[in-house]
Amino acid sequence: MNALGAGLAMLTALGAGFGMCLATAKAVEAVARQPEASGKINSILLLGCALAESTAIYAFVVALVLAVK
């Protein structure tokens, strides 16, 4: 039952992945439109990805807590 809960918790990765894909798509568009601002866009993208990823990381931690008895 614990393993099932951990697996369900990892479904959060879906949302994190989707959010990161949106952010990356927008960043690619921005770089294509303004290649000279790529440095700034890159750092912002990295920050945003880290923030979007954090939900998946929380889920991962929760899954670990559930899975490790």
């Binding site: 954090s54 990381i57 991962f60 931690v61």
Partner: peptide, 11 residues
């Protein structure tokens, strides 16, 4: 959040 992010990634 900072602690969990780093911990989760590393682990």
């Amino acid at each position: 959040s900072l602690a969990c992010r780093l911990f989760g990634n590393m682990l």
